[in-house]
Design a protein around this nucleic acid. Sequence first.
DNA 1: CAGATATTGGGTATCATTCTCACTGCATGG
DNA 2: CCATGCAGTGAGAATGATACCCAATATCTG
Lengths: 146, 146
Amino acid sequence: MVATSELERAVNDRLAEHDLRYTAGRRAIVEGLKAADGPVTLPELLDSSPDLAQSSAYRNLGLLEEAGVVRRLVHGGEHAHFELSESLTEHHHHLICESCGLVRDVTLETKLERTLDKAFDTLAEAEGFVTTHHTVDLYGLCSTCR
Amino acid sequence: MVATSELERAVNDRLAEHDLRYTAGRRAIVEGLKAADGPVTLPELLDSSPDLAQSSAYRNLGLLEEAGVVRRLVHGGEHAHFELSESLTEHHHHLICESCGLVRDVTLETKLERTLDKAFDTLAEAEGFVTTHHTVDLYGLCSTCR
DNA sequence: CAGATATTGGGTATCATTCTCACTGCATGG
DNA sequence: CCATGCAGTGAGAATGATACCCAATATCTG
C-alpha cells in the first residue's frame, strides 16, 4: 500500500491531468476508500463521511473513475462497489458473498498471476480484442452467512 | 454443446424441480439464448423473439435463473446480459468491450483452469468462504471499436 | 481584485428492472 | 366433459440506483 502522502500526490497528479481539483469532498472520498477494509458502496461511503452530498459523491466517484483514481465494481447487488484503482494499490481479486454482498480482497501468487496474464492476452488477441485489465471474482458464502 | 433434445429435457427437469412449467414463452427464451452467439441483453432477446412480452421475459429470466437454467451477467453497461447456465453448456469466461458492451465467450485450457480452481479454493478457504463458482472477465476494446 | 472556470448540493429526471393485477389457459378429479 | 384451482401472461405502474440540472459558491490566474 502506498504511503498516504504519496497517495495524495498521485491522486493530485491524476486529477490535474484531467483539469480536476483535489477538493475536500474528493479527498474525503479517497480517504474513505483508503480507510475501508475492501470495496464499499455509496451508502457506506456516505455513512463514514456524513458531510458528503449524495449527488456530489456520485459525480465525484465518476470523475475519479475517469481519472483512473477509482474503480467501480458492478456485481448483482443493489449498489455498485468502489475501491481505489489498482495502480494506486496493487492488483487483486474479489471474494463476493452472494448472500450479504460483502466483498473482500484477495491476491493470487505472483507466478500464477503472470501465467494467467499471458493466457488472457493470447485469448484476447485471438478474438481481435485489446485488453486493458481483467477481473477474477469468486462467488460464494462468507463465514457469517454460511 | 448439448444437443437440442437433451437441452430441452434438462431444462424441463430443472423447471419441474421448481414446480415451473416449460411454457412456450420460456422455450422461446431458452432457444433465443441457445441460438445467440454469446450472452445477450433483454432488448436483444426481444428483438430475436418479437412475441415475447417484456415483463414476462424479465420474470421468466428471473425464474430460469433461480432454476439454474440461466445465468445473469452484470457488467457496467446499461443492460444485464443473459446466457444459458454453464451446467448446460460448458465453463467459460468473458471478453467484454468497454466501448460497445459486446460480450464474447472464451475458454481457458483445461490444465490452467484446473490450476486456477485449486488456487481459488485455497484462497476462499483462508477467508472462511465457501465458493460456488467464479468468473473471469477480460475487459478491453473489440476489433471494431479499436 | 476581476474574470474565468470548476465545484457543490438539493432537487428532479432517467431508465432498467420488478411488481401488480386482472385475465387466460392448462391440468386434474369427479 | 365440465368445473375448479392454480400457474402463467402482459400491459402498465412502481421502484430505486444513478445521472443530470442549475443556481449559488469556491478557487485559480494574472
